[in-house]
Computed example of a mutant assay.
Amino acid sequence: MSIGIPQKRRKVSAQIPTIGFSDEDLTNVLYPHSDPLFMTMKISGTDVWRILVDDGSSVDILYYHAFKKIGFADRHLAPSPGPIYVVNYIEVPVVGTIKLPIVLGSGDRNVTQFINWLVIKGPTHYNGIFGREGIATFRGVASFMYQAFKFPTPNIIGVVEGKQKATRECHLATFKSDEHREHHELVMSGSLIKLADSTPSGSQGKRVKAKTDPSDKGKKKWMAQH
């Protein structure tokens, strides 16, 4: 007779309800379109609009001008571990980081979570980027086609509809300015990734060496690989 070693059971969290989209979600959507998803969220008690929902970004970005308008100052920022890079290795400096409460939804369909934001400066007509970290924190699903972000709440599925008209106005204003267009194309040209720490860990994945710019005098930059 053989005696097996009892296996520890994994703790199962509360079941997440199914999140889906249907034609009912298209009521306020203008077609045809290929518009990105922008939404309004309450950040530290302030309604902040023109937040781009981008699952191609591994970090959550709050632009400096929005950070200031919410009522914060540089003294509220924690140091950043380093700059961020887009896939073509262009460096974007980070002013600092800050953890703020975010409220999505309204009435009995709202959820509050704390998000770590990287605060950066740059010419732009929008106020932030809600990336994979934030999306995963809310356990949400975004759809640019249906112009909506859905997430579970204690009562029912919550939803934040995209601001499609504001999105188009934002893009029109962006591409009228060469400076804004250049920054927009820089940020949107690929996923944003954090600079890895000098000591690799399992959560950072494999390190890869970035291309060295001749002007950097042989300096090496390391990035976390997805």
Rank of each mutant, 00 (worst) to 15 (best):
K209Q: 08
D197C: 08
M145L: 13
K219H: 14
D47H: 07
T199K: 14
C170V: 08
D60W: 01
N110K: 15
H33P: 03
F21W: 08
K99N: 08
W49F: 07
Q7N: 12
V111I: 12
F21Q: 05
I70T: 02
K220H: 10
K220G: 04
L172T: 12
T137C: 15
K217N: 08
Y63N: 11
N116C: 10
V111G: 03
R168G: 06
C170I: 08
I84Y: 02
I43T: 00
T27L: 15
E169Y: 06
P123V: 06
V103D: 03
G105M: 04
A78S: 11
S2P: 09
T137Y: 05
M188V: 07
G82F: 10
T97R: 11
P152Y: 04
K176G: 13
E185D: 13
G56Y: 10
H183C: 07
G134Y: 01
Q113V: 06
P17V: 03
F114L: 11
Q147F: 01
N28S: 09
N110A: 15
R168S: 05
I16V: 15
E185H: 06
K163P: 03
H65Q: 15
I16M: 15
K219Y: 11
R10A: 15
A148W: 00
V48E: 00
D197G: 09
V160H: 01
L118V: 01
Y89M: 12
K150S: 00
Y64W: 11
P32V: 06
G107P: 14
A14M: 09
D108T: 14
Y89G: 06
V208L: 15
K217V: 02
S191H: 13
I19Q: 11
V94R: 00
S143N: 03
G56N: 12
R207M: 11
A66V: 03
I102K: 00
L26H: 10
K121S: 12
I70N: 01
V53H: 00
L100T: 01
K211L: 14
V141M: 09
S201L: 13
P32K: 05
S57R: 02
N88R: 13
S203M: 08
P32F: 05
Q225R: 10
A14E: 09
S189P: 05
K211F: 13
K163E: 14
G82Y: 08
G134V: 00
P79M: 05
V59A: 04
G218K: 04
D108R: 15
N127H: 02
D35C: 13
R139E: 09
A14F: 10
Y146F: 14
G128F: 01
H33F: 03
W222I: 05
N88G: 09
E185A: 07
S22Y: 06
L172M: 14
L77W: 03
P101A: 04
K11S: 10
F138W: 00
G20S: 11
I90L: 13
S189W: 03
M145W: 11
E24L: 08
V111P: 00
T124Y: 01
S201A: 12
E133R: 08
I90P: 01
W222S: 04
D216G: 10
D197Y: 06
G134D: 03
P200C: 12
K99P: 01
K194S: 08
S201V: 15
V160F: 01
Y89A: 10
Y146R: 01
Y89H: 12
F138N: 01
G82H: 09
F114M: 10
R181A: 15
